[in-house]
Design a protein around this nucleic acid. Sequence first.
DNA 1: TCTGTGGGTTTGGAAATCCAACGTAGGCTG
DNA 2: CAGCCTACGTTGGATTTCCAAACCCACAGA
Lengths: 148, 148
Amino acid sequence: MARPCSIAEALTVIGEKYSLLVLREVFLGVRRFEAMARNIGAPRDILAARLKRLVEAGILEKVPYSERPPRYEYRPTKAGLDLQPVLHMLRQWGDRHLVDRPAMVVEHRCGAVLEAVVTCAHCGEPVEAGSCTARVEAPGWSLAGPTA
Amino acid sequence: MARPCSIAEALTVIGEKYSLLVLREVFLGVRRFEAMARNIGAPRDILAARLKRLVEAGILEKVPYSERPPRYEYRPTKAGLDLQPVLHMLRQWGDRHLVDRPAMVVEHRCGAVLEAVVTCAHCGEPVEAGSCTARVEAPGWSLAGPTA
DNA sequence: TCTGTGGGTTTGGAAATCCAACGTAGGCTG
DNA sequence: CAGCCTACGTTGGATTTCCAAACCCACAGA
């Protein structure tokens, strides 16, 4: 990892194939192995490996729902729930740029179809391209705007 | 792809190893092959493949900056810029849950260190865990809240 | 006893990734 | 002009990851 960066760190945990789809299923309420395997279409060994990794990383936790035979379901931890915004933005990007008609509609509790916008918690304004500056230790990378 | 879903679609385009790090570099203003290879630490052949894919997908575009020898830089298109929110949320998640001290600080133009929040464009409220409902064609998956 | 379900692990082959070395095309230094 | 450097890839071969199918175990119901 050349540039030290928490995006790179994050991707070592959730960047492997299917990891984010596991999270998608968990957020949709699907928390058991068989159902995930079906809905994701992932090979079972890979799914097992991803679940193990996500549990180790503290993103999911294994909660027993049957004693005998021992059966577990996977629930998001606080850290896991904090990944929902990432999936929201990713889904929205896919809806806008990749598919004709979204296969899934997300509705906010206000009643509207969710149009998610990233805003700055400090000033409340939308975070647009070119409105941020990154300091990498030493100064002065500006995050790309349209023609930068 | 079992469940039709634009998250899955999106991941076929930007889900491969290094793709999002390429985007990170592009947003930081690094747009040439050599510099990307250094900063990302990716094998050169893989980097070439990722750039090709991102250009084909309309996320980056190749712009010549030298005639002879022919040299190109990679710039984000509109679709590419629309991925910035995903990276913002991902970086922030990594900062919060993975690293001790962020290696990079992003400042919003309002002057504050960026604390990004996903909000609903319709009502302006933050989109919290459990505040959305997903309809998948047929009704009724509720997106996970803490104990759901 | 036989069949079915849930939750995996094992196995052998296909595909993707990694790394170092090479090629090419021009520029810079002396 | 020789010799070295930068930029941008491509190639070959070793390694890792992925995948589908089969297998395994524990139980439940008929």
